[in-house]
C-alpha cells in the first residue's frame, strides 16, 4: 500500500482539467467528427465505423453526442445539434449525483473498455458525481452497449424495468445506436431507440472517453455550446 501511495505521490495529479480548461490535444491519428463540407449527401454518425479506409474525412473534434437520433445525421444544410441539458426537474434530481448501470447487450467489449477508461485518474468520472453501480435498483439510468442481440433483449428490458422512475437511458457506440455492423442480422435489433426511449446517443466505434464524458456533461448541463 505504501508503494502505491509513493507512486501516486511521485506521479502527482494526472487528472485533466476538462471541462474547465480545454481538453488535451488528441493525436493526428484520432478520427473525430467527420468533415461534411465538400462531401455529397449526408453522414449518419450512428452508422459509420470511423475506419480509415472509407472516403470520409475526419476532424479532430470529439464532441458528437446528441439527444435525438436524427441529430446524428450530418448534412451540409445545418449545424450539428449536440446534446442538450435535461429539463430542470431532472437536473434537480440527477445534476449532482448520477448512478449508472452498464448493460452489455451483445457488445464486443470495445465500448465497455473505453467506458472503463473514464474511471481512471485521467478522467476521474466520480468527480462529477457520476458512478457505475452494481444493481439497477441503485441506479438512475443504464448505459447500453452492443447491438442488443435477441438473447439479451429480455434481460435488457428487465434491467430497464428494475430501475426506479425517473430514469435515463444512454446508448453508447454505433452498435447500440443502430445495430452497427450487425444491422443486417436478424439476431440484432436496429437501434436501442426502437426498444426503449433513449436520452443520449454517443456515437463512435468505440467512442473516445472524451466523447462519452463530453456527452454526459452536456446532458447534465455542465457544458453548454
Amino acid at each position: 500500500m505504501l508503494k502505491i501511495l509513493k507512486t501516486r505521490f511521485k506521479q502527482g495529479c494526472r487528472t485533466i482539467l476538462f471541462p474547465k480548461a480545454k481538453a488535451p490535444d488528441l493525436p493526428q491519428r484520432y478520427r473525430g467528427r467527420p468533415i461534411i463540407a465538400g462531401q455529397n449527401g449526408s453522414i449518419d454518425l450512428g452508422k459509420i465505423f470511423f475506419n480509415p479506409d472509407s472516403d470520409i474525412v475526419y476532424s479532430n473534434d470529439y464532441s458528437m453526442a446528441t439527444s435525438k437520433r436524427e441529430d446524428l445525421v450530418l448534412s451540409q444544410e445545418r449545424e450539428m445539434a449536440l446534446a442538450r441539458a435535461l429539463n430542470e426537474r431532472m437536473l434537480k434530481i440527477f445534476g449532482r449525483s448520477l448512478k449508472l448501470r452498464q448493460v452489455s447487450a451483445g457488445g464486443c467489449n470495445a465500448c465497455e473498455l473505453d467506458l472503463n477508461v473514464l474511471n481512471t485518474p485521467v478522467f476521474d468520472l466520480s468527480r462529477f458525481g457520476i458512478q457505475f453501480v452494481a444493481s439497477p435498483r441503485h441506479a438512475d439510468g443504464i448505459v447500453v452497449t452492443g447491438p442488443v442481440s435477441r438473447n439479451m433483449r429480455e434481460a435488457l428490458l428487465k434491467t430497464y424495468e428494475a430501475i426506479p422512475e425517473p430514469k435515463l437511458v444512454i446508448a453508447l457506440g454505433g452498435c447500440a445506436i443502430s445495430g452497427g455492423i450487425f444491422s443486417d442480422s436478424p439476431q440484432a435489433s436496429h437501434g436501442l431507440d426502437t426498444i426503449i426511449p433513449v436520452d443520449l446517443f454517443i456515437p463512435g466505434c468505440p467512442p473516445h472517453p472524451l466523447t462519452t464524458l463530453d456527452g454526459l456533461l452536456r446532458l447534465l448541463g455542465r457544458i453548454s455550446s
Binding site: 448493460v103 444493481s135 439497477p136 435498483r137 429480455e154 434481460a155 435488457l156 428487465k158 434491467t159 424495468e161 428494475a162 426506479p164 422512475e165
Partner: peptide
C-alpha cells in the same frame, strides 16, 4: 407506487 418483479440480474 410502481410494482415490478424481483431483480434477478436479468435472469429470464
Amino acid at each position: 407506487v410502481r410494482l415490478t418483479e424481483t431483480w434477478s440480474c436479468g435472469y429470464v
